[in-house]
Write a protein that binds this DNA or RNA. Sequence first.
DNA 1: CTGAAAGCGCTAACAA
DNA 2: TTGTTAGCGCTTTCAG
Lengths: 330, 330
Amino acid sequence: MSATMKDLAKETGLGLATISSYFNGGNVREKNREKIEAAIKKLDFEINEVARGLKTNHTKLIGVVIPELEMIYCAQIITEVEDILRNYGYATIVCDCRSDVKREEEALDFHFHRRVDGLIIMPTSRSGEGLKRFIDHNKPVVVIDRKLPDVDCDCVLVDNEKAVKDGVSRLIKAKHQKIGLIAGPKDVYTSDERIKGYRRALEEHGLEVDETLISRGDYTIGGGAKAVASLLDSRPDMSALFVSNYEMTVGAMIELNERGVRIPEELAFIGYDNKEFAYASNPRLSIVAQPTKVIGKIVAQQMLERLGGDSKKPGGIWKLEAEYIEGKSI
Amino acid sequence: MSATMKDLAKETGLGLATISSYFNGGNVREKNREKIEAAIKKLDFEINEVARGLKTNHTKLIGVVIPELEMIYCAQIITEVEDILRNYGYATIVCDCRSDVKREEEALDFHFHRRVDGLIIMPTSRSGEGLKRFIDHNKPVVVIDRKLPDVDCDCVLVDNEKAVKDGVSRLIKAKHQKIGLIAGPKDVYTSDERIKGYRRALEEHGLEVDETLISRGDYTIGGGAKAVASLLDSRPDMSALFVSNYEMTVGAMIELNERGVRIPEELAFIGYDNKEFAYASNPRLSIVAQPTKVIGKIVAQQMLERLGGDSKKPGGIWKLEAEYIEGKSI
DNA sequence: CTGAAAGCGCTAACAA
DNA sequence: TTGTTAGCGCTTTCAG
């Protein structure tokens, strides 16, 4: 099949080590360098990363574990991460654990067996137990969207609380008092944080939190539509609505359109994520958009930095600001 | 670090080969089997796939190349494929080439260097040139959504033409004559096929194709919205609309809602893909839904079968039927 | 059924 | 600078 370094050595008349050092940035005489390059072309040589990996104990593989690839937020981050890592020769193995803790464990097992060089995870489980072995084996771990207790690794977060607080504050400043919240599922970190932000905004403006204005969805389109429906039914006096993730924002828009609720005349609206959707909506939606590209970039860079050697300094925390994008829905 | 087979041999007092054959389904005396298992537990042994790969020339890696991970159609297929392959010990490396031919080539290079055991691709390029080397090296290739000339590999397709033809026929049977089509971009295989289906339906029912009723989008939400807008403006007499991919369906719904076009009273509507969205819409959308799960399943199974040895029989073609899901939009 | 030994393609001392 | 050599952890003959 493919040519090996041995073949290159034979072809050039050089020693094996010279060839190897050519590929590893060592010093090789100009003349020999040329010879080697000619031989590479001639034999169509390509370095065998598997063999190299056996020797160096590196796989150039990065494991990624996410709750749902079908959630655009995940997909966007992955796309960015994969792109960057690939430019540095790392391959990204993505496991979708479907928001299931057991599947998540299996995914971690899988990656561990595979001996990935590093792990990137958007955790479903609340505990960081499964990550310890990676860290114990000195493999960098980068966590997205959650701070895990007792795990010393890099975390890249969005300031969910502030994002929602700011959004809701805008509604308040626009004279809204009865502001509904489509919240996410229980026991999900981002969901909890966002609810905190909602409460915070009201409190800071001296308004009382009315629990009946909070309706929970499950971060899906259908769930969002239902949550909105029930809120519209139970609280027809609501004058503004904040929806706390993208999929539910789509669901909410569908439900509102169906009922013919006019935005912003009858209901002010702030959605979440996905500029493209917001722009395409009519009226253009005001949204809180998480910086997925930046998240992806930081995650990838941090991973690369750790892989490059900085593996022993304590984990850092990046807390990014969400962006508020003004539309015409308030 | 991790224990090796050598360690197991030492621990159990058996030979290296016995250990190896234990892991490879060979015959091992029951007593020794137990001993080995105890040792595995004790030493926390895990087989090193890298070393194994060097020897067997298998990486247990499958390369995947897709145009856009953010397109839900891709994400759904990948999710399914990844899940199945993982159950068989294969890791999936996904490269998003952003519908760019050059990036696609790079992705193929990347996978080839990585020595993936097989390749799954939803091609952007029209040519199958880049796939040949995989096939030459006896690595199975499965192509999704397109038949590539001169490449002998398995193809999993959806009958796009029929899908659209059937959908449009339903509109015709519901007495619509002026049926708009939101088509996809030029030079994209699926897009062309779907347009063919549209023409076919009209022809078969003795209707003339009016080119001004066809508007092109670019398979994105925004593009879909724009295409619909221009069609509504130029052909206010249009009584039904067929949208030929998911993202554009979302865009179309947004535009229609904005304009207050009532479905189905003023405009009958058939969208594409994504049941969840169709259900969540109001009125519930009639859609043509591609069987992403089935596609994923067949792709994965076919890949596994080839990897399992059937690598030399000529490539097969699977042409799947899209499903028509009746809503209340006609 | 089990053990000894060779070697997959590469890296990394160590010598020269 | 370059060549020699010894493995990385595993599979796989080939004997026993």
